[in-house]
């Protein structure tokens, strides 16, 4: 199954090198022939840990903080794709105290959702309001 890795692309993450980290991941993934999809998301808000890379595991997302391009090879060696231990590993994202003590409303889905995936949007409650419209008033997108 394709492993999903999340690397933010918001301005703060870009300012501290997220683009170079993403490039390094793409290069390593290609050269190792891994079945990994890199998703560029919004930041989870822990800007002091950016670039923060997350990987989707069976137990939820696992985060790696302050990742530099030069760390990418060792992260993959340490089994990042399955949430493997590494000095940069922060554990499960949801268990980080900063996030755990928050109730998010406005930014509830920021960093969680794949912004370019309609399926992901729907899975997180997208288009719900439009579906309440009578069928003949629904936009074409929903009639398919």
């Amino acid at each position: 199954m394709t492993v999903k890795i999340y690397i933010p692309r918001d301005a703060a993450s870009l300012a501290v090198g997220a683009e170079k980290v993403a490039k390094a991941f793409h290069a390593e993934i290609a050269s190792r022939g891994l079945d990994v999809q890199v998703i560029r998301n919004g930041s989870r808000g822990l800007l002091w840990l950016e670039p923060m890379v997350e990987v989707e595991t069976a137990e939820g997302r696992v985060a790696y903080g302050l990742v530099k391009p030069s760390d990418v090879a060792s992260l993959l060696d340490a089994g990042l794709t399955s949430g493997g231990a590494h000095p940069l590993c922060l554990g499960k994202t949801e268990e980080l105290p900063f996030l755990k003590s928050q109730t998010r409303l406005t930014f509830a889905r920021c960093g969680i959702i794949d912004p370019l995936s309609l399926e992901d949007y729907k899975a997180h409650g997208g288009l719900k309001g439009l579906k309440k419209l009578p069928p003949w008033r629904r936009p074409r997108l929903l009639r398919r």
Binding site: A11, A15, V16
Partner: peptide, 19 residues
């Protein structure tokens, strides 16, 4: 630049740089 969390910041040809 709105990059207070990664200050000090600069922008070079439209690309942002922080810390």
């Amino acid at each position: 630049l709105g990059l207070c969390s990664t200050a000090p910041a600069a922008m070079l040809d439209g690309e942002v740089h922080g810390r």
